[in-house]
Computed example of a mutant assay.
Amino acid sequence: MLPQVCVCYLLRTDADGITRVLLGRKKLGLGEGKYVGPGGKLEPGETAVQAIAREVLEEVGLTVDPASLEERGLLSYHFPHREAWSQESTVFVCRAWSGEPTASDELDPEWFEIGDVPLGLMWDDARFWLPGVLAGGTVRRSFTFGADLSSVVAGADGDSG
Rank of each mutant, 00 (worst) to 15 (best):
M1D: 15
L2F: 15
P3W: 15
C6Q: 12
C8N: 01
L10F: 05
L11K: 05
L11S: 06
A15K: 14
A15V: 14
A15C: 13
D16E: 13
D16T: 10
I18P: 12
I18T: 14
I18D: 13
L22N: 02
G24I: 03
G24T: 03
R25Q: 02
K26A: 04
K27M: 02
E32N: 00
G33Y: 03
G33E: 04
K34S: 00
K34Q: 01
Y35E: 02
P38A: 10
P38D: 01
P38F: 02
G39P: 04
G40C: 08
L42I: 05
E46S: 02
T47L: 05
V49A: 12
Q50T: 09
A51H: 02
A51D: 06
I52A: 03
I52D: 04
I52P: 00
A53W: 07
R54Q: 09
E55W: 14
E55P: 12
L57P: 06
L57R: 11
D65Q: 08
D65N: 10
A67H: 12
A67G: 10
A67T: 11
A67N: 09
S68I: 08
E70L: 11
R72H: 07
G73P: 08
L75E: 03
H78N: 14
F79M: 05
P80V: 05
H81D: 05
W85K: 08
T90G: 01
V91N: 04
V91G: 01
V93Q: 01
W97T: 03
P101F: 03
P101K: 07
S104Q: 11
S104D: 10
D105W: 15
D116Y: 12
D116M: 12
A126T: 13
A126F: 11
R127C: 08
W129D: 00
L130N: 00
L134R: 01
A135H: 09
S142G: 13
T144L: 09
F145T: 03
L149H: 05
S151M: 07
V152A: 10
G155E: 06
D157L: 13
G158Y: 09
S160G: 12
G161R: 14
G161N: 12
